[in-house]
């Protein structure tokens, strides 16, 4: 009885080639439009095209405006990743959809008896190797992209201004270092790196100046830092990204990126002495 059963390993060794012959060749055989490769390719191209179009047009249109180089690179990252991911995902969609179109007999879903057994294909070395290699290459690309962007974003610059962000339930207050100015609105000069020293008075908050594309938690007891480089004049939003209790939804405020002159003027208007402003904005250089 057991002689009738072929051990799986035995089968692998002995029948691999035989099975490989049974499998309809992926690339070869018949006119090109009848080869599986062609069908998969058509679906793949279609799905890739859709993915790339979505990647190129949807995020940049839907995404909030950008006010900093960090947010510019977030946008670029999303576009690049979507464009890279589209053809890879489309491979799965292509194979799955082609199988469904080609090898699903009409009415099979209503039948109580299964179709005939398919080909006993228990693996395909080259396909697995190619699949793995592509994954590895993609991971390396993604990793290097991330590392590159991260290091370029967070490199401190000599002329960065440092300011303190204090979160508490449920208000953000922004302190402009030596000027002793505190505001609930975040006003920043354009084209200067800003280093935010973020801390909290009570629980953990998430400091998220949205259009600046950076984020760091505000923790009680010590400060965390994050750098942003505003590069465009205009308004932006500041939100809390970490659930912080009852009025978390209202822990939001607005910010403005202004010219250096306007910034100094604003500080003066808030009551900072010219000396303190100079100390704050110039001596950082």
């Amino acid at each position: 009885m057991s002689s009738e059963n072929i051990e799986i390993d035995e089968f692998h060794e002995g029948k691999r080639e035989e099975v490989a012959k049974q499998v309809e060749p992926f690339f070869k055989g018949g006119p090109i439009w009848k080869r599986p490769f062609f069908g998969v390719f058509i679906i793949w191209s279609f799905m890739t095209l859709i993915g790339v179009l979505i990647g190129l047009f949807v995020p940049v249109h839907v995404l909030n405006g950008s006010s900093s180089s960090q947010q510019d690179s977030v946008k670029l990252t999303i576009v690049v990743f979507t464009v890279i991911a589209a053809p890879v995902s489309a491979v799965v969609y292509g194979i799955a959809a082609y199988s469904l179109i080609k090898w699903n007999k009409r009415g099979s879903g209503k039948s109580d008896t299964p179709p005939e057994d398919g080909v006993a294909l228990r693996g395909h070395g080259p396909a697995t190797v190619i699949w793995l290699s592509i994954s590895v290459v993609l991971v390396v690309i993604l990793l290097f992209w991330g590392m590159m962007v991260l290091s370029s974003e967070q490199t401190p610059q000599g002329d960065a201004i440092r300011m303190q962000v204090v979160g508490q339930q449920w208000v953000w207050t922004f302190q402009y270092g030596s000027t002793k100015i505190t505001s609930t609105q975040l006003v920043l000069p354009v084209d200067r790196q800003v280093v935010f020293e973020v801390s909290s008075k009570d629980v953990t908050h998430g400091f998220w100046p949205v259009q600046l594309g950076v984020q760091v938690d505000a923790n009680p007891g010590f400060s965390t830092t994050i750098a942003a480089s505003p590069n465009k004049l205009g308004k932006f939003d500041v939100r809390c990204s970490q659930l912080c209790g009852l009025e978390h939804a209202y822990m939001q405020t607005t910010g403005r990126v202004v010219t250096e002159k306007q910034f100094e003027h604003w500080l003066a208007q808030k009551g900072a002495s010219p000396k303190a402003i100079k100390l704050f904005t110039t001596d950082a250089k």
Partner: peptide
């Protein structure tokens, strides 16, 4: 913590 429990969070 921070005195924001109980009545402050209700």
């Amino acid at each position: 913590i921070g005195g924001f429990g109980a009545v402050m969070s209700a």
